[in-house]
Design a protein around this nucleic acid. Structure first.
Length: 479
RNA sequence: GAGACGGUAGCUCAGCUGGUAGAGCAACGGCCUUUUAAGCCGUGGGUCCUGGGUUCGAUCCCCAGCCGUCUCACCA
């Protein structure tokens, strides 16, 4: 049971009194002449403007008062004078408009002695009476839980947060534009899949009543996008959510946004050019710069060309030229000595990979294409012609995180079936026969790539947590 | 899943060795017509996360739980 506290009661009383006076405290259509930002861009003295927004602070001086009005584009000061307004209107502002209320005002622009562009209010309307108090803007809200559970308050009070999400939207728009300009077509493929494929992550399960079947929220769109390559769409992409039923951390949210791109007749190298062009162009157009300052002061330089290095070479460079010539037992010992942990029964390639993931990847701040990973690590990629123990792939690492993996996609249906069978380890029901059927009809050789949009935005905005770039990150429901 | 830390007014926080709570801002009532983190005077506002325990007495100590933050684990 919600206790109506005193603060709320005072506001509810005001709401009631307004209704009794025949004033609707919740307004209706209100036509503004411009946004706050537009008003600021044309600060001609005595120009009349009509603006709408939320009152985020106010300073009552008796027969006059100042208030700050905030809309989606910015903030502007209002000057409300008794001598300018009718008694009724002045009374409305003085006694009925509170912090957090949404109002519409008309008045003329002027600049105060303190140099602040201000609207001398000549008339106003209450458009929404907030019956809960808004924290005073200066103090804001800091409690992470409140910020996330009541993101709207976070957005009202914390400009940085608002800017991050505006920027995210522009990043996604730029990515679409970049791909559309190059002849890629955006498509949508199933979120609910009978067999979750394209990644080895744990899926969420659901049930379709009418069909009487279990379905899984997708962990990746890959296998459906490849069906489209079979179908003759040669350049396709999808920007949409993936769902993985795994831990939540600074870098993981159960649902996250992924861009997947496929280009027929391309390979992992054409994907390198594409992603390098795409990310630098996005940074250039959205941020207007290629060097990004991170939350901890570290810098990320996106200036191309980006470093390309083979997985083996990178490991040798970092942990010793002899890493791959010593015995597997010695590798284990050295890895343990470095403080790297892995399961006791981990195969040799996983020991090296643990060393890569724990000690090398986090140090790669500037963009690095790590290429030619061991075939065991990647089941959907083509083996390399000169060395079949590795695959034609890259992992693009920026900001110490994997931002984009890309492959020369495996299109031999016989090898693909073998890899799936090895992976399914006897669980025939996990084999996506429908996908294999499509591959058997012939898929063109292709380059394919996934780009983690959340992590890309984290990198571009220099924030520390994935929750800073997802509007409503997953939280435990409130008790 | 494990560990560390935390949960006190609408917001931001303080609260000693155990004696049933404080500040600033916000709110309410005053004064003040170019202020801007406005100021001054006054008033009201608390399930100190929840439940047990110890104690004459618990916001404080102990136990359990809930929730959160961080780290680790999991994570193509």
């Amino acid at each position: 049971m919600e206790q109506f506290n005193e603060l709320m009661q005072a506001r509810l009383t005001k709401r009631q009194k307004l209704l009794e006076r025949g004033i609707d405290p919740y307004g209706g259509r209100f036509e503004v002449s411009e946004s706050v930002a537009e008003a600021r861009r044309n600060p001609t003295a005595e120009r009349e403007v009509t603006l709408a927004g939320r009152i985020v602070s106010h300073r009552d001086m008796g027969k006059s008062m100042f208030a700050d009005l905030k809309d989606s584009t910015g903030k502007i000061q209002l000057y409300i004078q008794k001598k300018v307004l009718s008694d009724e209107q002045f009374d409305l502002f003085k006694h009925f408009v509170d912090l957090g209320d949404i109002v519409g005002v008309t008045g003329k622009l002027f600049v105060t002695h303190a140099g602040e562009l201000t609207v001398r209010v000549e008339g106003g309307t209450l458009l929404s009476k907030a019956v809960r108090p808004l924290p005073k803007e200066w103090y804001g809200i800091k409690d992470t839980e409140t910020r996330l559970r009541q993101r709207y308050l976070d957005l009202i009070l914390n400009d940085k947060v608002r800017e991050t999400f505006v920027l995210r939207s522009r990043v996604v728009a730029e990515i679409r534009k970049f791909l559309d300009d190059r002849g890629f077509m955006e498509v949508e493929t199933p979120m609910m899949q009978p067999i979750p494929g394209g990644a080895a992550a744990k899926p969420f399960q659901t049930h379709h009543e009418a069909l009487g079947i279990d379905l899984f929220l997708r962990v990746a769109p890959e296998l459906y996008l490849k069906r489209l390559l079979v179908g003759g769409f040669e350049k396709v992409y999808e920007i949409n959510r993936n769902f993985r039923n795994e831990g939540i951390s600074r870098r993981h949210n159960p649902e996250f946004t992924m861009l997947e791109v496929y280009e027929a007749y391309g390979n992992y190298e054409t994907m390198m050019d594409l992603v390098q062009g795409m990310i630098t162009s996005v940074a250039d157009n959205v941020l207007d710069r290629l060097v990004i300052k991170r939350y901890d002061g570290a810098e990320i330089d996106l200036t191309p060309p980006w470093r390309r290095i083979r997985y083996r070479d990178l490991i040798e460079e970092r942990v010793g030229k002899d890493w791959f010539t010593i015995s597997a037992a010695e590798r284990r010992q050295r890895a343990i000595a470095m403080g790297v942990e892995f399961p006791k029964d981990a195969p040799d390639y996983e020991v090296s990979n643990a060393v890569y993931e724990k000690t090398i990847e986090p140090t790669l701040l500037n963009p690095t294409f790590v290429t030619h990973l061991p075939a065991e690590l990647v089941v959907l990629a083509k083996p390399s012609k000169e060395d079949p123990s590795v695959v034609d792939v890259f992992e693009l690492v920026i900001n110490g995180q994997e931002i984009a993996p890309a492959y020369s996609e495996l299109n031999d249906p016989v090898i693909q079936r073998q890899r799936f069978e090895a992976q399914a380890a006897g669980h025939a029901e996990k084999l996506d026969e429908d996908f294999l059927l499509a591959l058997e009809h012939g898929m063109p050789p292709a380059g394919g790539m996934g780009v983690g949009i959340d992590r890309l935005v984290m990198m571009l905005t220099g924030v520390e947590s994935i929750r800073d770039v997802i509007l409503f990150p997953q939280l435990r429901p409130q008790a």
